[in-house]
Amino acid sequence: MFYPNSPQTSPQLTQIPYGQQYAMMQRQIQQPYHPFATTEPQARLYPYHYQGPIQQEQGGFITQQSTAASPQYVQMRVTPVDQSIMSGYPNQTANGSSSSSFNYNIHPQQQQQQQQQQQQLRHHAMPVGSVPLQDDRYRKQLIVNYLAPDVTSTDLHELFSRFGELDGARIIYDKQTNMSKGYGFVYFCHAEDAKEAVERMSGYEFHGKWLKVGYSTNPLNIVPSNSSPYVHAGSRGAAG
């Protein structure tokens, strides 16, 4: 039997160049792979992502010199942007860049009308829970959420009447099932009393439920100042 490094198959040491006398086997001759043993700084910083320098080929596509990437890492192929796409944008300079302001050559009167329309939209648009300043009635009506099913309009009136005089209180019921929808409205005579009720009743436990109280901004629920107070009856038909 002959071994790869046996004296019968191995040459004389004098015939082997210096430095390879003890590297006779194939696994010894093959050098191990060192990912950080390279002179390129990109490979030292990113050993798993770097795959060699990027070269520009004919046709405008950018390719990489090395083989496919590892399945664990996804390499994105980048193509140059066609400058003709950006030619339609206004205020574009000769080098292809555009300024931040756009001039669509709008007539001054049209621009003024658009600004007025935007101001009107901001004036009428009102986020949930906010209180408008032009109508004091919005500051007097509250919406009470997360009410228990057994709470009546009379219970709601008695709960909030300790903060001040009320114009009314009612629970909203479903017309088909005649069941409470879980929320109601309270109408105060003074805005200061309503503000105190919002601050003190939010998070209050009532009939096993934690109440959420806020201003009601729905104009359909506003009680006119010259109208008669609501009837605080315990029956659902009268309260709904």
Rank of each mutant, 00 (worst) to 15 (best):
A194Y: 00
Y3H: 13
S97Y: 14
Q118S: 08
R44W: 02
H124Y: 14
S87F: 05
Y187K: 00
E57K: 15
Y173M: 03
P53V: 09
I62A: 09
G96I: 09
R44V: 02
Y183H: 02
P127R: 13
P7Q: 12
Y146L: 01
S202R: 06
Q15F: 02
P219K: 00
K209D: 01
Q114G: 06
Q12R: 14
N226Q: 11
Q109K: 13
R200V: 10
F102V: 11
Y18D: 14
Q120A: 11
Q51V: 04
Y33S: 13
R236F: 04
K195P: 02
V198T: 06
Q120H: 11
L121A: 06
G88V: 05
P127A: 06
H124S: 07
Q8T: 09
N105A: 05
S216I: 01
L166W: 00
Q115A: 09
R200I: 09
L121T: 06
E196Q: 12
S101E: 07
G184M: 01
E40F: 05
I143F: 01
E196M: 15
P108K: 14
V74R: 15
S6Q: 11
T14Q: 14
D136V: 06
A43Y: 05
Q114L: 09
Q109D: 03
P47G: 07
A37M: 03
G208D: 05
E40A: 09
Y50N: 15
S216P: 02
T38E: 04
L13F: 13
T79E: 06
G88T: 08
V131K: 11
Q26A: 13
P127N: 12
S161A: 09
E192A: 09
L142I: 08
A148W: 00
Q117K: 10
I54F: 10
S180K: 02
P71T: 11
K181F: 01
G19H: 11
Q176E: 03
Q109P: 07
Q118N: 08
S153D: 11
T152Q: 11
G129N: 10
Y89D: 04
R77I: 02
Y48P: 11
Y230N: 05
E57L: 06
Y33E: 07
Y73I: 08
V198C: 08
S70C: 07
D174R: 03
G182M: 03
Q28C: 04
S153T: 03
Y146H: 07
V144A: 01
Q118G: 11
Y104D: 03
T39W: 15
S98R: 13
Y18G: 14
T39E: 07
D174M: 03
G214A: 04
N218G: 01
T38N: 10
A239G: 05
M201V: 07
Y173P: 02
T14F: 06
K195Y: 15
G52M: 07
G234D: 06
Y204N: 11
N5D: 12
T217S: 06
H124T: 08
E199N: 14
A94V: 11
F61S: 14
Y22Q: 11
Q115F: 13
R162L: 14
T63I: 03
G88H: 08
P219C: 00
F185I: 01
Y204P: 01
M24H: 12
Y138P: 02
L166K: 01
S228L: 09
Q92M: 14
Q15G: 11
G129P: 09
A239Q: 15
K195T: 12
P32K: 10
Q58H: 13
Q75C: 02
Q83C: 03
D193Y: 15
Q51R: 13
T67P: 09
Q113M: 07
S70V: 07
Q112Y: 12
F61M: 14
A43Q: 10
S97G: 09
A169T: 13
L166G: 00
Q120R: 10
K175R: 05
K175L: 04
N105D: 07
P35I: 02
M201E: 00
G182S: 06
I62Q: 12
N226A: 05
G240H: 13
Y230D: 03
E165F: 15
Y173L: 05
Q75L: 00
S99K: 15
F188M: 08
R122W: 13
R44A: 04
Q30I: 05
F160Q: 01
V78C: 14
H49M: 03
T93H: 12
Y138L: 03
Y104M: 05
I54H: 12
H190I: 06
G59P: 09
G203N: 02
H124V: 06
Y46N: 15
I143C: 00
F185H: 00
P53F: 04
E165T: 14
S101V: 03
H107F: 08
V223T: 05
D167N: 04
Q58L: 05
K195V: 11
S130E: 08
P132I: 05
Q8N: 09
F206P: 00
F163Q: 01
Q8I: 08
F102D: 05
Q92S: 09
F61C: 15
A197I: 00
Y204H: 10
Y230Q: 05
P53N: 12
T217K: 04
E199A: 13
A43C: 07
E165K: 15
Y18T: 13
P53M: 11
L13W: 08
H107Q: 06
Y33G: 06
R44F: 01
P71M: 05
Y183E: 02
Y204S: 11
S84F: 05
S161F: 15
N221M: 14
E40M: 06
Q114T: 09
I62C: 11
N218D: 00
Y22S: 12
Q119W: 14
A23K: 15
Y138F: 05
